[in-house]
């Protein structure tokens, strides 16, 4: 199963690259640097998926104490943090030529940065507790707290940036939603979701093998 996922992921990544560089047009206002969006957006969206899965798996673990759920949460956390970190980095690389700056504290960037640090903490907690069962329990609790915190983070940051603020906030030269951009984006999104699934599946398999080796 893992192998099939792997090949599927590889194929769709290849397709994604073709779409991003061969099919997608050169963007009118930003130029070719806009092509970074075909990795940046899928990375961020796939990381959101990872964190949703993490939250659900944590809940399942707390209720049923099923170790498989814990392994899924663990793997999803790893891949999620990696993806969101890369998402932030690629966004920053895109931002420098487009906005003139590597970083800005607008609502979206701030929220994603907080997300990154929160789930990095999740991984740190994992790494610090040696006892597998205790780590599973604690991380499940943290996973749920983090998930419940996300709407609070979203609103507080959004209000912080938009209320009593002059309306001339920098907005990314965003999509005008033309289909020539939409299809390459969709293909790449599917590619990164498949990549996520492949990495999680492989990591879970490794975690199970590690657990059995110790038993």
């Amino acid at each position: 199963m893992v192998k099939t996922l792997g090949w599927l992921a590889a194929a769709s990544v290849a397709a994604g690259l073709v779409m991003a560089f061969g099919v997608a047009p050169r963007e009118v206002t930003q130029g070719n640097v806009q092509r970074i969006m075909y990795v940046h957006v899928p990375l961020i969206l796939a990381s959101y998926l990872a964190f949703v899965v993490l939250a659900l798996a944590s809940l399942v673990y707390l209720v049923r104490r099923d170790e498989a759920a814990d392994r899924v949460a663990h793997a999803s956390g790893e891949v999620g943090v990696m993806f969101v970190g890369l998402g932030i980095a690629t966004g920053s690389i895109w931002g420098k030529p487009t906005w003139g700056t590597w970083w800005t504290w607008d609502a979206r960037l701030t929220s994603v940065a907080i997300l990154f640090v929160m789930y990095l903490g999740y991984l740190l907690l994992r790494g610090t507790i040696e006892d597998r069962e205790r780590a599973a329990r604690y991380c499940a609790v943290l996973g749920i707290v983090a998930a419940l915190d996300i709407p609070l983070v979203h609103f507080s940051v959004y209000w912080w940036r938009t209320l009593h603020q002059p309306p001339s906030l920098m907005k990314p030269g965003g999509f005008t939603g033309s289909s020539s951009i939409l299809w390459p984006l969709l293909v790449n999104l599917i590619a990164f979701v498949l990549l996520y699934a492949y990495f999680v599946a492989r990591r879970v398999r490794l975690l199970r093998a590690e657990a059995e080796a110790v038993a």
Binding site: I114, V117, M118, G121, L124, L125, L142, V145, A146, D149, L152, V153, F155, S156, V157, W159, W160
Partner: peptide, 13 residues
């Protein structure tokens, strides 16, 4: 490290 990111909404508010 665990507490502060989670508490950002409280700090902002």
């Amino acid at each position: 490290v665990l507490l502060l990111p989670v508490q950002v909404p409280v700090l902002l508010a």
